[in-house]
Write a protein that binds this DNA or RNA. Structure first.
Lengths: 147, 147
DNA sequence: CTTAATGTTGATCAAATTAGTCGTGTTTAG
DNA sequence: CTAAACACGACTAATTTGATCAACATTAAG
């Protein structure tokens, strides 16, 4: 399960991606439209801003704008930012590898091989699916693409 | 990330699957061999027993045995048992569907389609990979199998 | 230059989940 | 009988999740 926070982040980004160019959206409007607790959304948008996905304008007629094009923002990037590594085991994360504390040999680890397949296939999907894809309703990848 | 508990459960089951037929393994031996906290492992094995994956014998010369054949126990089954639904969103779980509280229309949900792909592909792997596969070091599924 | 609308920040909090631990059983082979 | 095993419910500590709050900084419009 992904966290609620990631889900909110993705929905907020999709809302921004749909806004007319250079029209900032208000936190409050996004919160209402997407049914996200307003104060929580503030935090999330700040995270996204610190990571260069969005920009904000302060003061009257301020709000949030998508900084990068919707075609360049993947689900994987957003999820890693909010939830941390996608991999099912720490020793399978490419971006944030950590040795499993209790594992004597990664080579010999019997469960690792199975989860490596899972990690590869979810990466293939999530690092390919962009906000633009989601807006277009396009299926991100079919099994055939993974071959 | 899967929970430590699930990882322990899988490793314990693999240990049992490797034991000579009708030789019960002691909790303590599994715990030591797999570097699992002993008291925690007791709990986990009880869960597995209640769900019919293993049996135990009490008293002197007791211990645990695999109840079903290693070919019939999938990673997916074990993970669902311990961690709950595999699906990344509650509304995508086949075994434990729950409506997303904040979602107005599942049809229109833009993030759902992407995660539906993820759900399908991880199910394809985890519901296919058995303990026997893991012992054989066999790769569970390649991308090509998903097409 | 005032003011109202907006985002900013760090702290704090409650609930749930995770990862264990403990004590006191009960069962059974020898 | 008894030592070696599993059984089981309650308990606890640490972490993560999902927020909420108060006080503040910036800006456009009038």
């Amino acid at each position: 399960m992904i966290s609620r926070k990631s889900k909110y982040a993705l929905r907020a980004l999709l809302a921004l991606a749909q806004a007319p160019d250079n029209t900032p959206l208000l936190i409050g409007d996004i919160a209402e439209r997407e049914a996200i607790p307003r104060l929580f959304l503030e935090q999330i948008l700040l995270d996204l801003k610190r990571n260069g996905l969005v920009v904000s304008r302060r003061g009257k007629s301020g709000g949030y704008l998508l900084l990068r094009r919707a075609e360049t923002i993947t689900f994987g990037e957003v999820l890693r930012l909010i939830d941390g590594p996608l991999a099912p085991l720490p020793c399978l994360s490419k971006m944030a590898y950590r040795r499993c504390a209790d594992c004597t040999s990664e080579q010999a680890c019997l469960i690792r091989k199975v989860f490596a397949e899972v990690a590869e296939s979810t990466r293939a999907i999530l690092d390919t699916a962009t906000l633009a894809d989601a807006l277009a309703g396009r299926a991100p990848l079919t099994g055939a693409d993974l071959a």
